[in-house]
Design a protein around this nucleic acid. Structure first.
Lengths: 110, 110
DNA sequence: AATTATCATCGTATATTTGCGATATTGAAC
DNA sequence: GTTCAATATCGCAAATATACGATGATAATT
């Protein structure tokens, strides 16, 4: 128990869920927003902006990297993060497909 | 510890995170998809479709109801669930705003 | 070579999520 | 009123997530 039964669902549903989960914490949302506004991909400046410790931020960055939404390149002693355009596009479309598939027909419920 | 520091982030970022978190499990994605395709808002049929027990499905429904994405109306001994159009629209726009705010400028990283 | 700066990882504590069976609850059917 | 069917809720166990300080690794600086 305690383990999500991921195998039992479709690849598509899992993909949506995986991306959504990555967006499911305000710190990660803030990190992504920051990476978007700063054209040049900054690194540890993220730590300065967030109300979290360096290790916690690093943890969030790791998660974002694992789902593929961001990339991290080593640049000297710094690490340079940025959005991964392809993966971002895929995430965007996966979630948008779901959200757009609902259209109101005036009927609220039952 | 172990508690997310939600107060430290903006209302907007928290809103995005809250909606995204609700979509962050394939079972909930599947439930939402099911509610979208079935125009008439079915109830316990959801249990038959998912590979989860009744109590677990009920739990997921509760979470979706708590973020507001779905409504549940009691209809006799059954309960009738459906998408909440207004909240859905808000969620859709909140997430889309974030996702659309990134535009590639050809530059991959650094 | 020693020091410093930047970042990742480890270990740990706590909280939350996921899942299920068992047990309410409530309306329908008899 | 008793039984049945549909849901919700409770209580539990296991897995994950969140957060932080301490430590490790590595490159730049001195």
């Amino acid at each position: 128990m305690g383990t999500a039964k991921l195998d039992e669902f479709t690849v598509r549903d899992n993909r949506i869920a995986r991306y959504a989960k990555a967006l499911g914490h305000p710190a990660r949302v803030a990190i992504l927003k920051f990476l978007i506004t700063k054209k040049n991909c900054v690194c540890g400046d993220i730590v300065d902006v967030l109300p979290l410790s360096q290790s916690t931020v690093s943890q969030h960055l790791k998660e974002l990297k694992e789902v593929g939404l961001i990339q991290g390149e080593i640049d000297g002693k710094r690490v340079c993060y940025c959005i991964d355009p392809k993966e971002w596009e895929l995430a965007k479309r996966s979630i948008a497909d779901l959200m757009d598939s609902f259209v109101t027909k005036g009927i609220t419920c039952c």
